[in-house]
Design a protein around this nucleic acid. Structure first.
Lengths: 342, 342
DNA sequence: GACACTATCCGAAACGTTTTGGATCGCCCA
DNA sequence: TGGGCGATCCAAAACGTTTCGGATAGTGTC
């Protein structure tokens, strides 16, 4: 069907070897022959079969990333942003991107094994780490190049290349901001324990209280999955259990949106009655009603830099720094309300 | 390095053929031998080399999509949504997704040729059609499976599988809605002519005027690229040239955001002084301030359905309908303001 | 006239699969 | 006892490239 080297070779009377070398620009082929071969190749519309090339060269120039499936529209702009960043950088390095979506769990691990073990990619980008992440264990065990968006939980070693925002500092800044605004009863919505960054964000919350000389109330803390619905439920729990809360910190923007909805549903005004803060600064945060105070983590840039790091690791020229902690930024918006009198 | 059939064969004393057939479940291998082979394969952690399989089978079980690079965060949720839908459906059919990002133009065409001609994918999804789209011409000329999100401009044949929203009807609904609300001076921000859907949306605008017995003013129409900045500039042009405008229809949500900013920058209130409408209903539209009236196009679902269509075309079992026009829905939000007195 | 050297070309192997078309052996039946 | 048949196995080719290690012929040198 499609045009191969063999076809070109037949067409112009040279061997496959010579055609291959002519096209590759080796200097052991006569200049006039090369011209002839180039001409025939062009006329026939030759495109090298990349799969064959991959097999022979044991290189794919492709990087892989597996995301959770996103059924609803607004779910998880985190991955969208990350992918945009990765995609952009990958193109610059002449890499393609192979994406597959699976729910975390065995199915996801099978996909890792299939794609990585099946030699479909030169490297992997792992996002949103779990505690004791089996994907990382696997990639380390077979010594396959990979980089991680995020790192291990605080008590485990992060002995792999990663870029992560300093979650602890981020949440700490946010809580301190609320304390500054005069809040004393501040709720926290954490992700499940299994998510690696949970402990960092929890610590940031506790540190801020400690710094301010306030006592930590465990009943001010609830857990939600990372979606909007989870945030809604967790906020409901908090608001009903401890009505004295005047602020809620959610561990990502999506859950913060849910929390805002919960506050709203109870007839209380966001910002004025109950301040709400999030984490990530996804695009929707800025457009939310009211705009959401949050901790900005440069997801797009993290995607870009991770890709660069991965490409260099693949080329066996790892950059000097392969474990990068990014200082997040506090973005104050209307969901903070005004500083409270007294 | 990695485990191959040859390695397993050596390990358990059978030929590569037998190992291959044992693993593939053919019944011409003895049950006890199969068990033995399965065991060895499992112990060695065998994963079939997918690249080799692709080369031999001339099938990749991968579909490709090329998007424009998205440098800024909020730019173009259209492609994000489409990809989410495609990704989700692809996983269901056990296909992977190969993504590359290029700016439209020769570089994009080269990438098409490289990926499609290079046999990296079984099928392609083409998004956001141009007038007389060279990508489509190319794919048709080599008879490679593909489906399109969008169709040709009205005066050209759309002789390929596609799913598209009925843009004309969508804009018509939106403009009629504004007319209903009492607006008589309604601006329109169109994309460049080269975008295939421009003519449809323009027609919708004209039809709505005609239906209402109003005259069409060419000076109420401006052009912007499809981004927020383009919408801002076009809206500025319109507002300054024809200050009598009380409503602006932008041909996508991003440009509508830009238009809102322009209205705001002139000290006029969105909705109350100047109503604004968009097209697409990307997630941000709902969270905008004020929330944006728009024409909803189910992008995620289009991605899903396109993927299903493509998979069936690849399998040579094309569905009955391969040219689908979707009726969009008018979503009225606060950017419409209130019906005007008189 | 033999040797070395260069320029140009090519055969064969390899990458890891799957598939085609047998080969071998034991058994049954006429 | 030989022919046929089923069960089990395998060698070789093929997918399209790249690369290794020559082969060949022409040219120049001593």
């Amino acid at each position: 069907m499609s045009v191969t080297l063999k076809r070109i070779a037949k067409e112009c009377g040279y061997s496959v070897t010579t055609v291959s070398r002519a096209l590759a620009g080796y200097d052991d082929v006569n200049e006039t022959t090369r011209q002839r071969i180039l001409e025939v190749a062009h006329n026939l519309g030759y495109q090298p079969n990349l799969v064959a090339r991959q097999l022979q060269g044991q290189r794919t120039f492709t990087i892989g990333i597996i995301t959770p499936p996103q059924i609803h529209h607004h779910e998880d702009d985190f991955f969208s942003l990350l992918i945009k960043g990765v995609n952009y950088a990958a193109a610059q390095y002449h890499y393609d991107l192979l994406i597959s979506s699976r729910f975390p769990g065995t199915e996801e691990m099978d996909t890792y094994r299939r794609i990585v073990g099946g030699n479909r990619v030169d490297g992997m980008i792992v996002a949103r780490t779990y505690q004791d992440d089996p994907r990382i264990t696997y990639l380390q065990s077979i010594e396959h190049p990979f980089v991680v968006a995020g790192r291990s939980a605080p008590d485990l070693p992060s002995d792999f290349p990663y870029i992560d925002a300093d979650s602890r500092v981020g949440v700490q800044m946010l809580v301190r901001h609320f304390i500054h605004y005069g809040h004393r009863h501040i709720g926290l919505i954490l992700p499940p324990e299994s998510v690696a960054f949970t402990a960092y964000r929890h610590a940031g919350y506790r540190y801020a209280f400690q710094d301010a000389g306030l006592t930590y109330h465990p009943e001010y803390v609830a857990t939600g999955d990372l979606g909007e619905a989870g945030g809604y439920e967790a906020a409901c729990t908090l608001l009903d259990r401890t009505p004295e809360l005047t602020a809620i910190v959610a561990c990502n923007d999506l859950m913060a949106f849910g929390a805002m909805a919960a506050v709203h549903a109870r007839g209380r005004r966001i910002g004025e009655d109950v301040a709400v803060g999030g984490f990530d600064d996804i695009p929707a945060a800025q457009h939310a009603m009211p705009p959401l105070t949050t901790v900005r983590q440069p997801i797009y840039e993290i995607g870009e830099r991770l890709t660069e790091m991965l490409v260099r690791i693949i080329a066996d020229e790892p950059p000097a720094e392969t474990q990068i902690l990014i200082e997040p930024a506090l973005i104050v918006r209307a969901s903070s309300g005004q500083p409270r009198p007294q």
